[in-house]
Design a protein around this nucleic acid. Sequence first.
DNA 1: AGATTGATCCAT
DNA 2: TGGATCAATCTG
Length: 194
Amino acid sequence: MKATRTRILSRPDFSRPTLEVARTLLGTYLVRRNKSGVRSARIIEVEAYVGPEDRASHASRGRTNRTGVMFGPPGIAYVYLVYGMHHCLNVVTEREGYPAAVLIRAVAQDSTLIDGPGRVTRRYEIDRSLNGLDMTMGQVLWIEDRGERVATDQIGAYPRIGVDYAGKWAAKLWRFRLEARNERKPPARRLRTP
DNA sequence: AGATTGATCCAT
DNA sequence: TGGATCAATCTG
């Protein structure tokens, strides 16, 4: 078997345009270390939240106590509680001062799909105590590139979930999913109008 | 379809 | 300071 090097993603990886970072994260591994050990899972689905104009983004209402980390340096974890119950994990992207992040929506641990941002954080024991954590340090929470290449045709683009309030921003295809090989999008096909 | 749940944000 | 809102999930 071919030896592949594992590389912990570093600041420059997250400094790039958010849509690119989002797609790049597909097929990499989210790694969590706590007192019970180290666990990892392949990132399957993400969403991009891009800039102060993006009405779907928490940062669209300006810098607040909660959204502060989105305005900070890239590679930092932005973890918040939603609906009073579930935590969501994001990684901050782009330059300091420009609010943007990628939400981790689904991962696969071996053959088990952990589908949904709240399920990911629950399974990996990620909560607001990790908000602001530097994910480039490889100590508590980080992302690894294990050299598994993802072809463009394995990536589907969809509207983001739960942002219907965001007007035209809700229609942006800023959710990216790594399709299973047998779920690759077939060639576009003209459908008869019903 | 409806309940749940509590931090956050801004002003009926 | 109160109350609407919410980057979701579970159970019917």
